Computed example of a mutant assay.
Amino acid sequence: MLRTIFWVVVIAALAAFSAANWVPVEVRIWEGLLLETRLPALVIGAFALGLVPMWFLYRATRWRLTRRITTLETSLNTRAAPSLSSTNLEAAQVQPPRNETL
């Protein structure tokens, strides 16, 4: 819910910024190379250049940690499974008390 609210606020702010600043700007890339674009396109491009690599890093880290957790859980389950053999289960069962009369 909070993530959705955050992205709605970011998109609304970007739309308001774009409407107020729809002016052409010149960006000098090299000495003889000029790029004429609108200011909102420049801001969105800069935002994407910062967001996309960090998002890929986040997703890759999350994928790697999920695989690691799955591997550790699997190894824990295979190590714990032999201790629950049938002989241990029979010994662990509670025996009803015997009525011994002398």
Rank of each mutant, 00 (worst) to 15 (best):
1 M>K: 10
1 M>C: 03
3 R>K: 05
6 F>H: 12
7 W>F: 15
7 W>C: 02
8 V>D: 06
8 V>M: 11
9 V>Q: 08
10 V>P: 00
11 I>A: 15
12 A>P: 00
13 A>Y: 04
13 A>L: 15
15 A>N: 06
15 A>G: 05
17 F>T: 01
18 S>R: 00
20 A>R: 13
20 A>K: 08
21 N>F: 14
22 W>H: 10
24 P>G: 00
27 V>S: 04
27 V>H: 04
28 R>F: 01
28 R>W: 03
29 I>A: 13
29 I>S: 07
30 W>L: 08
31 E>H: 08
31 E>G: 11
33 L>E: 08
34 L>I: 06
35 L>W: 12
37 T>V: 15
37 T>F: 06
37 T>E: 09
38 R>M: 13
41 A>T: 04
42 L>P: 01
43 V>C: 05
46 A>W: 06
46 A>E: 07
47 F>E: 00
48 A>M: 14
48 A>E: 07
49 L>T: 09
51 L>E: 04
51 L>P: 02
52 V>M: 10
52 V>W: 05
53 P>I: 07
55 W>A: 08
56 F>E: 08
57 L>H: 12
57 L>W: 14
58 Y>G: 00
59 R>F: 03
59 R>E: 09
61 T>N: 13
62 R>L: 11
67 R>S: 05
67 R>Y: 03
69 I>E: 13
71 T>D: 10
72 L>Y: 01
74 T>P: 00
74 T>Q: 13
74 T>L: 14
77 N>V: 05
78 T>R: 13
79 R>F: 10
80 A>K: 04
84 L>W: 09
85 S>P: 00
85 S>R: 14
85 S>W: 05
87 T>E: 15
87 T>P: 07
87 T>Q: 15
87 T>R: 15
87 T>D: 15
88 N>I: 02
88 N>V: 06
88 N>E: 12
89 L>G: 05
90 E>A: 15
90 E>H: 08
92 A>T: 02
92 A>H: 09
92 A>Q: 09
92 A>I: 02
93 Q>R: 15
93 Q>T: 06
94 V>P: 01
95 Q>I: 13
95 Q>F: 10
100 E>D: 12
101 T>W: 06
101 T>V: 12
102 L>H: 11
102 L>Y: 13
102 L>Q: 12
